[in-house]
């Protein structure tokens, strides 16, 4: 039996300290609410209405909204909106794939509401920002009354929409690596239409230290990540490993595409088919590798 809407208590902490204290007490029954672009849709289903507390995070904006350089990393506060990301000159210089993800994210109205922290915590395998963040070596910082801890994004999801954060922890920021020298980057989202669509396949990549040699192109470093092709957004470690192992040419490219297609685990669902996703993910990688060959 579900409780009615009026039985939910809304808590509105005005500081981060207060918020983590509240979570220490009632975290197991609380749903933190940021922009609400996922949760308000979910709440239309009566069975998904919150049962205890909604933790309205709006009061934490002064502490958790903003994009800045912290040491050698770019730190994005959890309440930074997708629109902030789209218009950040710092991110345009340091994290182009993330800006590209923001560009095709929902609609203007959604981008104004949705936060990067919400996108990370919602953890949809089809989330636009997550493959970009994975390709940028993102780490997330969680805070509880016991202190902070940092988790690499690639190990943040235990399973389909199950982040490893504990109920007492609040996501406070995401840190990504600064752009290396001469990066070659890509973010491609394939969806059923050009706006307001949920991804069928996403592939994000960043390569650097890419050098043309006599027999082919040497990829020093590469990060690849994909969305909508498994239960969680995926860093493609195996594909990366193959691509670093030898000089890039047609043979290695074909091998990498084959590895990618076996590394991902897409399914048939209402948006697309496993076969299409596997096919297109591979072709997106071919495209990216083609741009490496051209730009090296």
């Amino acid at each position: 039996m579900s409780r009615g809407r009026d039985e939910v208590e809304v808590l509105a902490p005005s500081s981060l300290r207060e918020a983590v204290q509240v979570l220490a007490e009632v975290g197991a029954e609380a749903i933190p609410l940021a922009g609400g672009s996922d949760l308000m849709v979910a709440f239309r289903d009566v069975s998904k209405l919150p049962r205890g507390f909604v933790l309205d995070l709006l009061g934490l904006e002064p502490e958790l909204r903003g994009i800045e350089l912290v040491e050698d990393e770019v730190q994005i506060g959890a309440l930074t909106t997708v629109d902030d990301i789209l218009h950040s000159s710092l991110l345009a210089a340091e994290a182009r794939p993330l800006v590209e993800a923001a560009r095709c994210f929902g609609s203007t109205q959604i981008r104004n509401r949705a936060t990067i922290g919400g996108n990370v915590m919602n953890g949809s395998p089809a989330a636009d920002s997550l493959p970009a963040l994975l390709a940028l070596d993102a780490r997330v910082t969680l805070l509880s009354s016991e202190g902070p801890r940092t988790v690499p994004l690639y190990s943040f999801y235990a399973d389909y929409r199950r982040p490893v954060a504990k109920p007492s922890e609040l996501l406070v920021s995401i840190r990504i690596a600064r752009a290396p020298a001469n990066p070659i980057e890509s973010f491609r989202k394939v969806a059923a239409r050009r706006a307001q669509a949920i991804a069928k396949v996403i592939l994000a990549g960043r390569a650097w230290d890419v050098r043309a040699e006599e027999e082919g192109v040497r990829i020093g470093e590469i990060r690849l990540a994909a969305g909508s092709v498994g239960p969680t957004p995926m860093r493609l470690f195996e594909t990366e490993r193959i691509l670093r192992s030898e000089l890039l040419g047609p043979r290695l490219a074909a091998e990498a595409v084959a590895v990618l297609r076996s590394e991902i685990t897409p399914i048939d669902d209402l948006r697309s088919t496993a076969a299409y996703r596997r096919l297109v993910a591979g072709r997106l990688l071919e495209d990216f590798l083609g741009s490496l060959l051209l730009q090296a």
Binding site: A192, R193, R194, A195, Q196, A197
Partner: peptide, 11 residues
């Protein structure tokens, strides 16, 4: 609306 896809002005 998010699964039954109708074209938008961008399409």
């Amino acid at each position: 609306f998010n699964r039954y896809i109708v074209p938008t002005a961008m399409d």
